[in-house]
Structures are given as C-alpha cells and as structure tokens.
Nucleic acid binder design. Structure first.
Lengths: 336, 336
DNA sequence: ATGAAAGCGCTAACAC
DNA sequence: GTGTTAGCGCTTTCAT
C-alpha cells in the first residue's frame, strides 16, 4: 500500500491518520519525550501505513542545519580525482557517514564555477561541514575555509600553513623510513625525486628524506623535482642520471613517478636493485606487479577518509578534536 | 564588506536595501520578466553589496525540486568503489554537472542502511535524479528505480533486464574485438576467464567472446568463471591450465584478473605471448607496465560519466533520450 | 510593472 | 502530555 503513493506523504497526514496533533507526530518522528505510549504507537502505525518519509529539505530549512557534508577536491585539474587515492578516501568517508543521517556531496572544485560553489558553501551554511583535500597553502580558499563558520577538516596538511583541523598521513616519517631503509642496505649515494613542492605531501616527503640523510651524515644534494606524475618521474630520473651519474639509490615520492623512473634506469642499462635501488610512495595497486616489484611506503588511505569524516562529525557536534597524523609503513619488495 | 557576514543574508534584506518588494527582488534573482531596468539594477547592486547568496534549501522547498542528483553505487561491498573506474566516471559526471546548478551526491548503497537510503531517495523526490551503477538485474532496487517517478539512468546495463534509460560501454563488441584479434594472430585454442556472470559487463564480454569464436568456427568450451578480481584471475587461470592444457591464448574479462592470470602462466613455465597470448579488458593504469605490457580493451570511462549525466539532465528537463552504447577499442601491447 | 499574501513541510516556543 | 502558533527563506499566484 505504500507503493502507489506518488505524492509526498506529509507529517500532517500522518498526524491526522493517527488522530493526533502534528507536534505529537513530530515528536515521535524525532523520538523526543512527552508523548504517551499510546499516541506514539498510533503515530508509528500511521507512518508505516502511509509510508511516510520526512522531507529532508523542509527539515533542513526549519532546523537551519544542512543534511549533507561536502568532500571538496580543490585542484587545478579534475583529472587529479581520477587518482585511485580519492576513491579509497571516499570509501572510508562513506563508511563513517553511513552511521549517520548525513549525505555526502562531492565537489570537484576545479573550474572557476566549482571554486565559486565551494566559496559559497563556505560562506553560507548550506552544508553541515566540509572536508577539503588537495588544498595548496597559497590558495585563498584555504584561508576562507579556516575562517568559515561551517566546520572544515583538511585532508592532508597544505604547505605554508597549518589548518586547525586536519588529518594527514605521516609523509615525513614515511619518507624517513624509506630513506633509512636505503641507508641500512648499504647505499650511500642516495638521490630523491620529489613531488610538487607546493603540496604538503611533496614538501613533507622531501623533508623526511633530508632528515634521514642528515642523521646518517650523507650527502643530500642529489635531488630532482617533479610533479607526482609518471612523465614527471621519467624526466626527473633522466636529469638525475645526467647530473649525478654515481647514484646508487633513489627515493621517489610517488609510485607513479617511480614507475617512470624505473623505466629510465633500466633503459640506461643499470639494474634494479643491483646498481640502483628504488623506493616509491603510496603502494598503488600496480606496485607489486612491475618488474621488479616496487618497494614503497604504504599509507592507510581508507583510514584517512574515515578519520576525516569522524573529525568532521566531532566538529559538527561541538567537540574540539586535535589534528591526526596516520602512520605509514614500508612495504619491502624487489626494487630495493 | 561581504566578508564579515556570518548570518545568512536573506532576500528580504536585499529587497529592503534596494528599496523594492521581495517579489521584485526574487524576479531579478531568477531573471524573470516584469521588472523595470532601474529596479533590476538596484537589486543587483544590493546583491553585490550584501553578498547575497540564495538559500538553496528554501528554494528547493518552495519549488518542490531538489538541487542535487545522486550517483549511487549499489553493490555488496563498498570496496568495489575503490576501483579507479568509478573515480573516472565521477570526473566525467562532474564535468557535465559543472555547467548546471546541480550538486552531486554520492551514495555507496552497500550496507542495508545505504540501501534504505537509496530506496527512500527513489520514493520521495529528494533528488532531482539518480544515476545507478553496478546494479544487478535481480536487485529489487532495479525495479523500484525503473518505476520511480524520479528520473533514473543506469550506468551499465544490468543482466536480466534492460532499463529504459542507460549508457553502457560496448562490452560485447570489445570482447569480440579482443577475441578476433587473438584469432587473427593465429591462435586456435582460445580460452576465456569471465567476470561475474550476474553483472552486465560479465555476461556481455562472455557473449562477445563466444560470438567471435563461433564466427571463426572455433571451439568455445575453454572457460573459467571468476569475479573480476586479481585473485579470481589467479584461481581461474590455474583451473584453465589444469583442464585445458593445450590452450594457446586467453581473453580475460578484466585487467585485474589478467594480472593474476599472467602470473600463473609465467609460473607454469609458459611464455607470454609466445606460448600463450593474453588480452585483458579495461586498460587500467598499470596495464602498460606489467611484463609483458598487457594488450587490452579500453573503454571511454569519463565519457560514460559525462553521458550518464547528460542523459539524466535530459530526463530532468522532460526529454526522452535513447540508451547509449559507447565504443570500445583494442589497445595492442606486448602480451598478444 | 508591482506588491501582498499564501504557502512548501517541517520544527520549536509557548501556553495549556 | 498535548496542541497552537509562529516561523525557516524562498517562490508564486493573484490582484492592483
């Protein structure tokens, strides 16, 4: 009987059917106190009979609080979202949100339209909260987000400023781990290919690399900068081979770049890991299948999503969480 | 001056500031006719001064139409969304939606809660439209979606029934292409590893395989069923090698499975493509980097997303689009 | 061309 | 416990 109802069933109809006032019905729906057992039951029955589903829009308008949170990816190209990384993050977020009434909106704030939308979101309280990823520190939206009165959690700590609330992977620690591993296996002329230095992850991984080398008293001058992409890795590795022909290992700040770099090294006639050891970062799905299988630093991506959502929920309910750094770990495979 | 406004700026405030009635202001905002040039200008100025942004919730309530569309992934495990495939789809969808006022909500309808949410979405008009992916034909939600009075477009044609509106990749054609390529290169004892046969893509790819073999008058009995996953591919390949030791080629219905299969073939001491040629499906990012690089069938994933969104927009605005099949193409690499 | 008034479906004060 | 009332911010007849 609930099937045929094309029209929205209203609370008034439920109330009428149950023979109670609208407020009583409302109280039952939101299981608030001050309703007699009998009336409560009557309302519940009416709800079932009529197939009542509260109108989220009306509720949002009345309560002045939105029923959705937003995951916004702020970046120059929508293409970055194609990185499997985000899909994993979304799975984590979704898992956490699943236990609430909140919906998840996705905003690829890539075009100027998208950015405007994000800006409006931040200004008006159309969303219960916002999760922001791929934010560059110098992006004005970052500041705006920080000042906004809608709760905002950053995913990844942008370079240049530390947001109040964020969850990030331990990029620096992971890079140290990787570099120390290289050192421990006897390498001494260790290079690095960095990611974009205007991104938090790029800077942090570079810093970790430097630290490890400093502690060991090794030379940290063999560095080439790239942009996290495979092609970038290719170019950077060529540069490295060119300028620092003596290198015997390289810490590459992303697996995608490592793939490109590996190719170049092999084409240059050097063996991996014999002549040159390589360690990547991210543990992408393909990492174990390239030849040789890539040693890399894995980060708990789904947890990242889960924790971002959790932190946002905390913020929404008025708590004051502290930033979170999630551990990374080294996955040893053949390339080092 | 627009910065400090913590409170929502209302239309009334704009109207007052502009010295006009609320209706006039409203007309300007929605650029409706019947407003004098002077008043229009005044309102526009007030909007700019105050930093007015219409309240989407209130608007939705008044107009009875939602400001968001939903992408729902219906599947037993949230994990499927981690497939990079969806990220690409989302990029496509987002690109199309970017030109509209519609927001994108993401619903991983995996838990029973998630499914309930999807169901309610379909029953109540809380969303302007819904895009449904990974639907199994026997899922009751599929029927419900088909009857729902909110516009629904399917991504991928579920097995068992053909939805009114869908966009799909040419899975059957792609599989034929792949198999024909194998035949053309002289293989005669061709096997296949299928995906889940309860999914549209799984069935269609298998059918394409059969067709190609039938046309060539070749035996199509060498088949093992798997579930699209790498582990599934591994197991299926073992089975195949066991039961049909004479095979000289295999069409694998997904790259993930192909990766597993390739491994098994090599471990069995057979060379690829010398002894056994392999063709995959999907052209995942890693396909070109495995050894040997994987020949595979590529589908236009972003286009899939774009077209789904376009079709949904058409539906929302009252048109009656026709289903779309997007072409696939063979990407020849080393494994065949 | 213009403004007044009546909702959209819900919640929340407030009286009883 | 219970019901009445007044909004939330917007759109939309309907008179003027």
């Amino acid at each position: 009987m609930t099937d045929l109802s094309r029209r929205q069933v209203t609370l008034d109809e439920v109330a009428e059917r149950a023979g109670v006032s609208r407020s009583a019905a409302s109280r039952v729906i939101n299981n608030a106190p001050h309703v007699s057992k009998a009336k409560r039951a009557a309302v519940l029955r009416a709800v079932a009979d009529l197939g009542y589903v509260p109108n989220a829009t009306a509720r949002a308008l009345a309560t002045q609080q939105a029923g959705a949170v937003v995951l916004a990816i702020s970046s120059d190209s929508a293409q970055v979202f194609a990185d499997p990384f985000f899909a994993e993050v979304v799975v984590g977020i979704s898992a956490t949100l699943d236990e609430t009434e909140l919906e998840l909106m996705l905003l690829l704030a890539t075009s100027s339209r998208g950015r405007t939308r994000l800006e409006q979101l931040l200004r008006t309280r159309q969303a219960a909260g916002v999760m922001l990823m791929s934010m560059h520190g110098d992006d004005p939206l970052a500041r705006l987000a920080e000042q906004s009165d809608v709760p905002v959690v950053f995913g990844g700590c942008p370079i240049g400023f530390e947001p109040r609330y964020y969850v990030d992977a331990d990029n620096r620690g992971g890079a140290r781990l990787a570099t120390e591993h290289l050192i421990a296996s006897g390498r001494t002329r260790i290079a690095t290919i960095t990611g974009r230095m205007d991104e938090g992850a790029g800077g942090a991984r570079y810093k970790g690399f430097q630290e490890a080398l400093a502690v060991a008293g090794l030379d940290a001058s063999r560095v080439a900068h790239a942009d996290f992409s495979e092609d970038g890795g290719t170019a950077a590795m060529r540069e490295l081979l060119d300028k620092h022909a003596d290198l015997d290992a390289v810490f590459v700040a992303s697996d995608q770049m490592a793939v490109g770099a590996l190719q170049v090294v092999k084409e240059a006639g050097r063996s991996v890991p014999g002549d040159v050891a390589i360690v990547g970062f991210n543990d992408i799905a393909g990492a174990r299948h390239i030849d040789p299988p890539l040693t890399t630093v894995a980060q708990p991506i789904q947890s990242l999503g889960r924790e971002m959502a959790r932190m946002l929920l905390a913020l929404i309910s008025g708590d004051t969480p502290t930033p979170l750094i999630l551990p990374t770990r080294l996955v040893r495979r053949g390339s080092s």
